[in-house]
Design a protein around this nucleic acid. Structure first.
Lengths: 206, 206
DNA sequence: TGCGCAAATGCCACTCAGTGGCAAAGTGAG
DNA sequence: CTCACTTTGCCACTGAGTGGCATTTGCGCA
């Protein structure tokens, strides 16, 4: 299916995957902070210099699965038909992107999340990835909708609301091991959006 | 007003403020990455060791004004009467917290934002501060509302939506210099929330 | 098959953020 | 004045990340 890549590219890709796998493994067993770069590159027999030509930072490699997700999400929204409620479009795009991720992705993502949840620096970067994606998504939609697109803020806010639900689902999934699965948690979180925005605290006149 | 602090504490506070001021100054003129810690501590005549006893990292000092804001926001929501729509409560709390910040805060915050907008690492940390605050806020509210508080997700989602508006306002304010001012931008962003969540793309049958 | 180009890699020295440990102040209470 | 306690400064050290350059390696071409 996928076009046969030239040997050079395949090699590069294999190194990348080997590094990501080794890093995730080490981070999981030893912890993120306790793992040094030398250990990672040692396990793959690659120079430190090569590591930094492949990943931007030690944090970056830990979040590789997340990066893949947002890349795919952005692609989806570059092609998806744009009609109907924007919030629904954002939700469907994520649900289906999730569904279309490669088979081994879920496990790698789970490992990545467990590490990130225990490491403030990773959480920060993860949020930034997400924020960068929202900007890119709004760019894409504004572009696709042409000159009479809605104001960018109107495209932005529902996306952030959808992502709040995503983050919630993500956390539930990571915390409670099995249960409904990531897609299930996500569906529930989406369902909670309308009511949550109408939620009011009754006046306690008791 | 403020209780007279013992000398030791006052000294510590002065060092803290001096460091923050010097850092902001240097970051503004030289840029964040081009500024070294030695320059900062040199300007205040303090050892590097002392810096790290006062701030957690080089990033941390650049975001000091932001930290102050979220601390104040959390305090406000610890005391504010809880009645009516949650989204409105969150909005009012931020508007009033903003209004109650000390006189010199706005300028420091503006400088901090300009630096952060140009520095990915700062943006990431800024998002994390914000996320940490949301968790703390939900904790506080759940606690205050007692045993029959709504599900945490119902408290979480409106807060994140409100913060999406905040981030938008913040960016508008930083990008376009003067204009409506931060509070003005925030008001507009709040006003856009309901429509944005109902926004739909018309089917182009043309 | 061999040649040469361009890209990728390895190696080395270097900068700089951040930490641990300990000795030298400074502060506060009696 | 002194003793206990806190804070600071100093120093050596780890580890992430970078720049530069020589070396190798995939690749097109004759």
């Amino acid at each position: 299916m996928t076009t046969e890549l030239p040997l050079r590219e395949r090699k590069k890709l294999r190194t990348r995957q080997a590094l990501a796998a080794a890093a995730l493994e080490l981070f999981t067993t030893k912890g993120f902070d306790a793992t040094t770069l030398d250990e990672i590159v040692g396990a793959v027999e690659v120079s430190k210099r090569t590591f930094f030509r492949t990943f931007a930072s030690k944090e970056d490699v830990a979040l590789a699965p997340e990066r893949e997700l947002w890349t795919a999400y952005l692609v989806d929204l570059g092609e998806r038909p744009l009609a109907g409620p924007v919030l629904t479009i954002y939700q469907d795009a994520l649900t289906e992107t999730l569904d279309a991720m490669p088979a081994d992705w879920a496990d790698r993502f789970a490992a990545s999340r467990r590490i990130a949840d225990a490491t403030p620096a990773l959480n920060a970067l993860s949020l930034r990835f997400c924020a960068d994606t929202t900007d890119a998504v709004v760019d894409t939609l504004a572009d696709r909708l042409g000159p009479d697109a809605p104001d960018r803020i109107l495209l932005h806010l529902p996306l952030d609301t959808m992502l709040a639900a995503w983050h919630w689902a993500q956390r539930e999934w990571t915390a409670r091991g099995a249960g409904p699965g990531l897609a299930g948690h996500l569906e529930r979180a989406f369902a909670a959006i309308p009511a949550s925005l109408e939620l009011a605290i009754p006046t306690t006149s008791a």
